Every structure is written in structure tokens, then in C-alpha cells.
Amino acid sequence: CEVVQKEFSLSPIVVSAKTREGIPALREAIARAVPEGFEAASITQGLVREGDTVLLVMPQDIQAPKGRLILPQVQTIRDLLDRRCTVVSVTADRLEPALRALKAPPALIITDSQCFGMVHRVKPDETPLTSFSVLFAAYKGDIRAYVEGAAAIDQLTAQSRVLIAEACTHAPLQEDIGRVKIPRALRKRFGESLRVDICAGVDFPVDLTPYDLVIHCGGCMFNRRYVLSRIQQAQAQGVPMTNYGVALAKLTGILDQIVLP
């Protein structure tokens, strides 16, 4: 270490694969090395090509802000337009008429995660399906880590404890996806005594070990560096972590049937 510091003016991190010494410090150093504001190359990278028709299913219910679209929807539309795709947007109740109006099945359907089950039932067999939250799981975080973390859902019990982590500090509405729908789905499957805690904004626990699973939102209000640091924190403490879209796909039983960026 002294030689490296002297010769190269660098501070090495000593890591042992055997004892795991230094691995948390290495993870932190990697997270710090990601440039501020760094994002993946494209929200829909690898899923669409120029000229594709992409159908967006966007419920405008009580959760949707009045008079505007939410940020992930706006950013996804802009990404698709930049990739010279044809974008068709519908509410969930207009999905089937929209599909009938198209001359050919869309190249991709992107839905709100809460509509996964319904959209999957009626979509054309040849059209791949994903969600805004799943896209942002890759754009803002680590989609592979989230999919691995979702496997922990099968191990939950009525005595488990789950943390729901929201990036923004919005006032929760009726049928809020993080505060109502996901906890309800978990308790329906594992029992009403399953404990669900909520954190919002930067109020993220330092110690995650009391939890059996962390379910994070899409992270549209955070930069990728910060979201990755949360994933690495959970991994360092041995706590599985997934995100809203991946968790809902898992709970709906279609995680293996949706496309990942």
C-alpha cells in the first residue's frame, strides 16, 4: 500500500475474497466513482428500433397528478421520440380499443406496474411487455440486482418485515402504489401480520438488517449514483432489495414473461 501511494499517489483498497475484508469499502469507492448525474444510455435501450410503434398504458386515476403526466412517463415518451418511434398513449380502459385500431401489434407495450396483470391478459402474444418502473429500475439502478432481490418475496412469511422506500416526499393519495397497493398485495399473500415500514426522500435507514426485503420506487427523483449506493448498502448488509415494478411483476406471477432493458 505504501509503495502504491508513494509511486502513483493513489490510495489502494485492500480486499480479501477469503475474509471479505475491504469489500464494503470497495463498494463505496465504486459508487463514489460513478459521475454525478450519470444515467444509462437510454431508458428503452435494447427494446425498440427506429420506426417501431410503442403503446403506453397510463392510468389517469386518483393517483395521477391533475393536468400533467408523471416524470417517468414524460421521460419515456421523450426517449421514444428521440429514437424515432411512433408513440401511442392510452388509459387502461382504452387498451383493447387501441389495440384493435392499430394495423399491426405494437412492437412494445409499456404499462404502469399496477396494471401488469390486466395488460398481460389482453395484449397480443407477440408483443413484449414491460413497465415504466421496470425501465427506471435499469435506468436509475441495477435491474439484475432487483430481479435477484425479488426472489426473496417467495421467502416472506407473516412474521416478515418489509421496507418500502420512496424517492419523493409526495402527499400519499388513495390507492397509493407504495403505501397501499404493494403492502396490500404482500399481506394478502403472506398474512395481515406482515409488517411494512415506509421511508421517503433521503430518510433511508442506515441499518437495514431488521428487514427481510427492501422495495424501492423507480427513483425518478434521484440520480443513478445515489440509487446505486442504496443498492450497494443493502447488498453489503445482506438484505435483498427490489423495486416497485419488479416486485409487482413477481407478485403477479409474470416476472419471467416481461422484457428487461
Rank of each mutant, 00 (worst) to 15 (best):
L129A: 04
V202C: 13
A158N: 08
E192G: 11
V196R: 12
I143Q: 02
K140N: 15
I143K: 01
R187Q: 14
R187V: 08
C217R: 07
P172L: 14
I177A: 02
E175G: 05
A138G: 13
I177N: 00
G149L: 02
I143D: 00
G191R: 01
P128M: 08
Y146G: 04
A158M: 08
D142P: 06
A167S: 09
R144H: 14
P205K: 11
C217W: 05
G201N: 00
V202I: 13
K188V: 03
V180H: 12
L194H: 08
H216N: 03
A165H: 09
K188Y: 15
V202T: 15
K181V: 10
T157H: 08
P183M: 00
R161L: 10
I177P: 01
S193I: 07
V206W: 07
Q159W: 04
L163P: 11
T157E: 01
F190M: 09
Y146R: 04
G141M: 03
C217H: 03
I182A: 07
V180R: 06
V162P: 08
S160W: 02
C217E: 05
L194F: 12
T209W: 07
H216C: 03
E175N: 13
K140T: 07
P128C: 06
R161K: 12
C168T: 04
F190V: 09
R187I: 08
V147D: 04
I182K: 02
I198K: 00
A151R: 15
L163M: 12
V147N: 09
I153V: 14
T209V: 11
Q155F: 02
A138M: 04
L194M: 12
G178R: 06
R189L: 10
A165W: 14
V206E: 15
E166W: 09
I215G: 02
I198L: 14
L186R: 12
R189Y: 05
A200T: 14
L194R: 11
R184Q: 13
A167I: 02
D142S: 07
P205M: 10
G178N: 13
Y139D: 00
F190H: 15
A158R: 14
I198R: 02
A138L: 13
D203C: 04
D197H: 05
Q159I: 04
K140W: 13
R189G: 03
P183I: 00
V147W: 06
V196I: 14
L129F: 05
H170L: 13
P210F: 00
V180I: 13
A137M: 10
P183D: 01
T169G: 03
L173G: 15
S160T: 12
L194P: 09
I164K: 01
D203H: 14
A145L: 14
P183E: 01
D207W: 10
L213W: 05
L208M: 09
A152W: 04
E175L: 15
R195A: 12
S193E: 10
G201F: 02
I182D: 02
G149A: 00
R161M: 05
T169K: 07
E175W: 07
G178I: 00
C199V: 15
L173D: 11
E148C: 08
P172F: 08
P172K: 10
L173S: 13
S193T: 14
S131V: 05
P183N: 09
G149K: 01
